[in-house]
Structures are given as structure tokens and as C-alpha cells.
Design a protein around this nucleic acid. Structure first.
Length: 587
RNA sequence: GCUGGUGUGGCUCAGAGGUAGAGCAGCUCACUCGUAAUGAGCAGGCCGUGGGUUCGAUUCCCACCACCAGCUCCA
């Protein structure tokens, strides 16, 4: 706790709140600087953010260069030095509108229109600059001690792409210069964990200009993908899932029935086959539904859990592409669960448990979002309510915290999303559980109940990894490329101290290969330190086997561990047993 | 798709209106070496693509493509 002086109160203030006030004030000081340098600028919205602040500014035709940003930052420092008092005042609605109109601040006027009739409207004034704002703020500009402008981008007014695009100027702010520098250092470290960088260094995957957004998996990335899939199959077999594979290309009529054509045709790749339009699947569910519908089902066999590792293609906007996190084709670790109404809660809970098990395996922290009915959706109010309640009940029974994302569900049903963080703290949706009453209706799915009557099943769509590509990106950043042995693309690297030991080295290498260890040998004429450096820093291989005259003589192997940097000498049999055990148990 | 930025050998980057450099990686040779970089040499580039300006463009201008930071979108 620290005492911080603000305009609203002088109080004991938790760190978070203190930073929020600092950052919010930084936004105002930046606006003042912008206004001094660009008098025609008018201001839309300027909040504090997680690590700093931004202000969305309408600069008319003016484009900002890097030099302009530097000038704005310099002007901010001047304002701080001037140590201007920041004073709040309150106006009635009419007065507020009049004041903002006199300043030409049309966005603020629009903002007032959105406020409730009886709202008291507060302002903050620092020198010549006045901003409509709820505050609180620092009392004097000099109290802003550590900040930096970090960039600019476009941003739509009210986040709506139909509105005008404004210029967003962004910065970071902390309570001390040291904290700011620490944060910059942290960013630098985070950059080193970037999966795009590590992917290149380790040779995991690549992209080509000829296929923007479509990842190529290189042998080492493929090894990770396969290891994940093996793990996935193991836990799904244990949970009584069965597995299918459905076609990549199917007739447009199927997508019309499912509703995808209407909702996503602009994002679906299609082709013409014998004069009919066919679509490359953007989702696996219609295929799964056709499999279900191909034979009659008894209530006795429900829930029926049908998995599919399906490669889907979606035409994402190119500006949205981002390494493996946002691609145009990806493998969903999908499953469709067909069940009776009374099985909803239990099944949802089972899936939540499974997803939690997977994320715990990797030590991820995640947050859960419950998304409700969007405007543009199909189905009856009753079904939507039942589905949403089903999801909510499961979450509440499990006592899991979640946030509600109003109107962000799929067009066919509400969903629970699991979001994971990347190295920079940006979150990405990975797991999802969607409850669907519509697809079974559209496709006329049935099962026979205990009275011999036809009933309509309910469907869950769910993924754990989400997209295996995205998940590989997330784990790459999470482990900074230092994958546990069971996932490591190269599990062991044999390093030869000198050519003299090549025969024994080959023997060891062959034995490792025979034991199905993913393994390479470095027999270059280099010093051992050189080879270790490369194996450790570039390959990030969990175990280095060092072979020199000593090992030849003793008939042993020296194992250097990546994570402890310690070396242990043992027999090859012992090492094989140790590493096989770790791989088998996925430690 | 939108705003701003970037594009030079496999990788990281420097450079300038007169047709290109460094380090690392690669290859060769010497050293035969013990836990995070041995030394020397060689080779490698249509300076993203297509137009334009110019006596001359990789450098300036335009368009496109790709990538980066955001925005929008994400079934």
C-alpha cells in the first residue's frame, strides 16, 4: 500500500489502482501534447490499459511519422516539467455539451448523448487542456514519472468498422523509471520466446509467400504435432471417444443445410466439381453429423462421443494472420457428442474436466468465457435458453470462475471458451465447448428412446487444444522452446568429443534410434563446448550424450541435462530406461 | 479489409542515385580437442515482384505481394 494523491481523494491506494491513475493521467498529458502540436486534433477515447494508456485521436488528414511520435513524447515531458495542476470540475449536461461544442470535441458530445439523462458530468482541466473524464487523476503533471510512447495504429470509433478510423497513439507508464525499464527488459525477453522466432531457430515450421497463412510443418514441428496427437488419442480412448475422419471437400448444399454457407460463405474456400459448387470444410461438424445420420441410434448408446482430427480451411483476413496463432488452415482436435437432454450437464462437466486435465499437463493458466446468443443466430428462444443454462449450470457446479461475453456465441448455440496467454500476455481462444440444438434439427438427427419413439439428440461441439497449430505456438512460447522430453522434437543429441570416439558414438546413436528416441549425432570436428552450446541454445535438446575417450574406455555414456546443466555418467541401459520412462509417462 | 511500419545472401543486420558489405550458419584445410563459440581460407545476393522517373535505380516515385504492431474479424 502506498499513499497516492489524486483529485478525488487522498487515500491508501493499492498498486493496481495507483498505476491506473498514473496511466489515465498519462493519456491526458499525451492528449494535451498532441493538441499543442496538432491544434486541429479532436479526441475520442483515452483510457488506461494493462501496462499503459492510449488515446484515439481524430487528426483529419494528418498522418503521424515516427518523428511526430517522438515530438509528442518530448512535448509530454515538457508538460510534466511545467508541473501543471490538474483540477476537476462538474457541469450539468447542457453546460457540458456547450463546453465540448466550443472546443469542437464532437466525439465527447456524442459521448454525452450516450450518458443517462441525470448524469453529472465531470471534467479535468490542466492548463489550457480540458477533458471530459470520470477520473481520478494525479494532482500535478509532475507526478507522472515514467512513461514512453510505444506506437500508433488505426482504431475505429467505438470499435465499429463502419465508423471512421481514428489514430490510436499508445504508450506505457509506470510509477518509476526502474519499473518502466524492467518492463522493457521483460518485453525483450518475451520477444525471445516468440514462437515465430523459436520455430525458425529450431526448424519447427515455416511459411511461404506462395501460401500466406498456411503453415508448413517441418520434420521437427511434425514430431511435436505427432506427440500431441498421440497424447490426445490416449486420453480420448480412455474417455470412451471413438474417432472418425470426414471429407475435406463437400457439396455446398451440405453447408446450406448447416447454415455455414449463409453465415460464412465469404470466409469459405470453394471449388467447382462437375458444375456443382463444393466447399473446403471450415468445420468438421456437418461431416460428423452425416456419419451419425448414416445409421439408426438407440438411447442405450448415448452419449456417443465421436472425435475427429480435422484439417479445416478458413479464409481469414490477411491482416489478422499471426504465426501459428492465426492461420488459414488448422487441425481441430474436434469431437461431437450426441446425447439426450438430461445428459447435458454431466457431459459438459466431463469435457470441462478433460480440457482442464490437458491444460494442467502443460501448467497453463487460463480463463473461461461463456458466450451467449448473438443477434444473427438460428433457433428458438427456448432452445437457446436451455442450452445457455446447461453450460452455466455445469460451470457453477464445478465452481469455476467465468466471465460472460454477451452475444458472442456461435450462430447455432452458446459456448464456453478457454483462453490461454502467449508470452506477451495476449490471450488466444483454445478450448471451446458449444452446445447445439440446431444442427440436429437442421439435419433431422434421431435416436430411439426406451419407449421406441424417435427423439432428437442434442449435440456438443468441443475441442481441447482448439487448433493444434495454435496450441503448438502457445506451448512453444510457454516452454520457450525447451519442451519436455516427450514433446521435444529432438530428444537426445549425441556429441562426439573427437573423431577418435566415432565408432562408439555410432553404436550409442544406433541404440538410441532403435529404442525410438528422436535423436541426432553431431560428429563435426568442433570443440565439445561449441557443440554443447548449439545443442543447448539452438536445438534446446533435453539430453546431450557426450562421447569421448573416457566413455569409450568405461563403456558408459555421459548425459548432460539441458535444464540442470549437470552431467551424469551411467550405462546406456540406465539412460535408456530413464528417458523411456519419462517419455512413456509424459513427465 | 483498415491505419502505420518493414522487405538487402540460410539467419541477424549495415549501406548508398554509378550495378553491394559484416557477423553467424555452410564448405575446405589445420588442430583431435572434455561441458555455452579453435584458427585460416573458400563459396554464397536479379538488394520482395512489376511498372515509372533518370544517361544510369537495389537506393527516388507508383502499384502489387509478403511480413511486423494494432484495429476489425475469428463458426
Amino acid at each position: 500500500m502506498k499513499v497516492i494523491y489524486t483529485n478525488s481523494t487522498v487515500n491508501e491506494c493499492p498498486k493496481e489502482e495507483e498505476l491506473h491513475i498514473i496511466r489515465h493521467t498519462a493519456a491526458h498529458i499525451m492528449a494535451q501534447a498532441v493538441k499543442r502540436l496538432f491544434p486541429h486534433a479532436i479526441f475520442a477515447y483515452g483510457p488506461a490499459t494493462d501496462k499503459g494508456f492510449y488515446y484515439d485521436v481524430d487528426l483529419g488528414e494528418t498522418k503521424l511519422s515516427d518523428n511526430d511520435l517522438q515530438a509528442i513524447e518530448a512535448e509530454m515531458r515538457k508538460i510534466v516539467k511545467e508541473n501543471i495542476a490538474i483540477k476537476p470540475f462538474i457541469l450539468s449536461r447542457e453546460e457540458a455539451i456547450a463546453l465540448m461544442k466550443s472546443h469542437g470535441e464532437e466525439y465527447k458530445v456524442k459521448h454525452i448523448d450516450d450518458l443517462p439523462e441525470d448524469a453529472v458530468i465531470s471534467f479535468y482541466k490542466q492548463g489550457e487542456y480540458v477533458d471530459m473524464c470520470v477520473g481520478p487523476h494525479l494532482c500535478y503533471t509532475k507526478a507522472l514519472k515514467a512513461f514512453k510512447i510505444t506506437g500508433q495504429s488505426g482504431a475505429y470509433w467505438k470499435n465499429d468498422k463502419n465508423n471512421k478510423m481514428l489514430t490510436r497513439i499508445k504508450g506505457i507508464a509506470f510509477s518509476s523509471q526502474k519499473e518502466l525499464e524492467d518492463y522493457l527488459k521483460l518485453l525483450e525477453e518475451a520477444e525471445k520466446r516468440d514462437h515465430r522466432r523459436i520455430g525458425k531457430e529450431m526448424g519447427l515450421f515455416m511459411f511461404s509467400d506462395e501460401a500466406s497463412g498456411f503453415p508448413f510443418f517441418l520434420p521437427k514441428g511434425m514430431a511435436i504435432k505427432n506427440a500431441l496427437i498421440d497424447y490426445w488419442r490416449d486420453i480420448h480412448i480412455r474417455e470412451n471417444y471413438i474417432e472418425v475422419s470426414t471429407p475435406m471437400i463437400m457439396n455446398r448444399k451440405l453447408w446450406e443445410t448447416s447454415g455455414h454457407w449463409e453465415h460464412y460463405k465469404d470466409n469459405m474456400y470453394s471449388t467447382v466439381i462437375d458444375e456443382d459448387i463444393y466447399c473446403i470444410k471450415p468445420m468438421n461438424c456437418p461431416g460428423g453429423v452425416l456419419v451419425y445420420r448414416s445409421q439408426p441410434h438407440s438411447y442405450r448408446n448415448l452419449p456417443l462421443r465421436v472425435g475427429e482430427l480435422g484439417l479445416v480451411h478458413r479464409h481469414e483476413l490477411k491482416g489478422a494472420l499471426h504465426g501459428l496463432f492465426r492461420v488459414r488452415c488448422f487441425t481441430q482436435d474436434d469431437a461431437h457428442i450426441f446425447m439426450r437432454r438430461e445428459q447435458i450437464t454431466t457431459e459438459i462437466m466431463n469435457v470441462v474436466h478433460l480440457i482442464n486435465e490437458v491444460y494442467s499437463k502443460f501448467g497453463f493458466k487460463y480463463f473461461i468465457e461463456l458466450s451467449t446468443r448473438p443477434n444473427d443466430s438460428m433457433g428458438s428462444d427456448e432452445d437457446w435458453e436451455a442450452a445457455t443454462n446447461g453450460l452455466r449450470q455445469a460451470l457453477e457446479k464445478l465452481e469455476l470462475p467465468y466471465i460472460i461475453n454477451e452475444g458472442d456465441g456461435a450462430f447455432y448455440g452458446p459456448k464456453i471458451d478457454f483462453h490461454l496467454e502467449d508470452s506477451l500476455g495476449r490471450t488466444w481462444q483454445c478450448g471451446t465447448i458449444q452446445l447445439d440444438f440446431q444442427m440436429p434439427l437442421n439435419f433431422g438427427l434421431e435416436y430411439i428412446d426406451e419407449k421406441g419413439e424417435k427423439q432428437r439428440p442434442i449435440m456438443i461441439h468441443r475441442v481441447c487444444f482448439g487448433s493444434i497449430e495454435r496450441f503448438i505456438g502457445i506451448i512453444t512460447e510457454h516452454f520457450a522452446g525447451k519442451f519436455p522430453v516427450w514433446l521435444a522434437p529432438m530428444q537426445v543429441k549425441v556429441l562426439l568429443v573427437s573423431e577418435k570416439s566415432a565408432d562408439y558414438g555410432n553404436e550409442v546413436y544406433t541404440a538410441l534410434r532403435k529404442a525410438k528416441i528422436r535423436c541426432e549425432m553431431d560428429s563435426r570436428n568442433e570443440k565439445i563446448g561449441y557443440m554443447i552450446r548449439e545443442a543447448q541454445i539452438i536445438d534446446r535438446v533435453p539430453y546431450m550424450v557426450i562421447i569421448g575417450p573416457k566413455e569409450v574406455e568405461d563403456g558408459m555414456v555421459s548425459i548432460r541435462c539441458r535444464d540442470t546443466a549437470k552431467t551424469e555418467t551411467m550405462t546406456l541401459e540406465d539412460f535408456l530406461e530413464k528417458i523411456s520412462n519419462e517419455i512413456e509417462n509424459r513427465i
